[in-house]
Design a protein around this nucleic acid. Sequence first.
DNA 1: TATTGGAGTATTGTTCAACAACTCGGCGAC
DNA 2: GTCGCCGAGTTGTTGAACAATACTCCAATA
Lengths: 236, 236
Amino acid sequence: MTVTDDWIDRIPDVGEELERSSTAERVADKLRALVIDGALAPGTRLSEEKIRQKFKVSRNTLREAFRLLGHERLLVHEFNRGVFVAKPTLADVVDLYRVRRPLELSAVRGAAHAPQAAVRAVGAAVEEGERAESRGDWWGIGTANMHFHEAIGRLSGSPRIDEVMHQLLAELRLVFHAMAAPREFHAPYLGENREIYDSLAAGAFDEAADRLAEYFDAAERQLVEAFSGGRGVTTR
Amino acid sequence: MTVTDDWIDRIPDVGEELERSSTAERVADKLRALVIDGALAPGTRLSEEKIRQKFKVSRNTLREAFRLLGHERLLVHEFNRGVFVAKPTLADVVDLYRVRRPLELSAVRGAAHAPQAAVRAVGAAVEEGERAESRGDWWGIGTANMHFHEAIGRLSGSPRIDEVMHQLLAELRLVFHAMAAPREFHAPYLGENREIYDSLAAGAFDEAADRLAEYFDAAERQLVEAFSGGRGVTTR
DNA sequence: TATTGGAGTATTGTTCAACAACTCGGCGAC
DNA sequence: GTCGCCGAGTTGTTGAACAATACTCCAATA
């Protein structure tokens, strides 16, 4: 009411930042980390009672957390039987790539409209991977690879695509746990990631997309092979 | 044991069919229908106590249902404040199309690999829309349009894409409730849907995709307009 | 020997009641 | 007109209870 009053409009929308989290969400976060890091092997049954004791929350809250992770497909809820760590099948692997392909490719092809910061984030993920390799951190290479593809998805500037990508990649980590030799999987793609990024940074979007498409073909083929040959076809 | 024992392998995988559903899921189904049909206007607050009385379930079960619908983005859960029927903003509309575009277009472009039944389902949705129009059922036209695009998504043969599409379209119904004149929105596109299908059925996949792309541009433009001009920019 | 049936146990599904933590609106002090 | 406080109402979380279902083991049977 005094002199100017429109400064309020210039404050950059703090919005959701100060979200407090519910207990269920925090429990879900912990559980998610355990699943993704492989501490809980695919197929493991999560007993309500035992987990409840570990986390010291009520059964109801725990069940809410289970629901959350179920929606992310990291856990599967079988009625009256309990929740299990998801155990991706060959069909799941193929399906994951069926979703990633159109989303990531279109993100790259339309990257002309993406902000510079988003492109740079892709580069940062590439470097993260290279650093991890130089210190022999194979799990770090995998993480960096996830970040790389997450950054690519972010090029499209869509929160919903971000979320879908995030979920898909979390599921993919499960796939790695379920397959035969996860250690050597990511390293070969470090070079390709850099090439994709270089094309991208140079504005050669279609070229980057073509390279990415090749990556998809190769990676999917390798995964399918690991599943069929490796260590028994996750019978399920 | 006796003569032949492999008949068991020939039984066509009854699998998931006989899934029993939890109470929470049934409640979620009812609520979803209410939201989609517009019985609950966007922005409405859903009091736990009142809904609980209506549905005669416990508060815990109800909260589980809320969580489910929250994940579908039909409800938004504000911590310590309650759940509200989602109120899509202009940004949401744009985002929805950002996701639909790559998914549906790639589904159509790759429809050569889709089974005939999937293509026929697209045609069935077209006819469903034409029937609805002939009897002046404008809401039915909208439903048929949803089915049309859901069928298109199904061309890609990916369960995950199916699920994403289903959610996106449910959200889109919310958009219609939030905008100015939903009645007249769908009818103009009936003709285009048929053309897209005809191209598809004729095996002209790229042509079908191009038509679909035009549809996206037009529909998004119209929706954005309805949001900006119509009845105040859903301030939020 | 292999299969079926059933009792008992463990686990999940759902409800209920209680209390803590928080939001919202109003009222009074300044 | 702003600030702070109080109280009513709602949500968040817990714990206990009971019903419904699945799992295990053992005996009966063919």
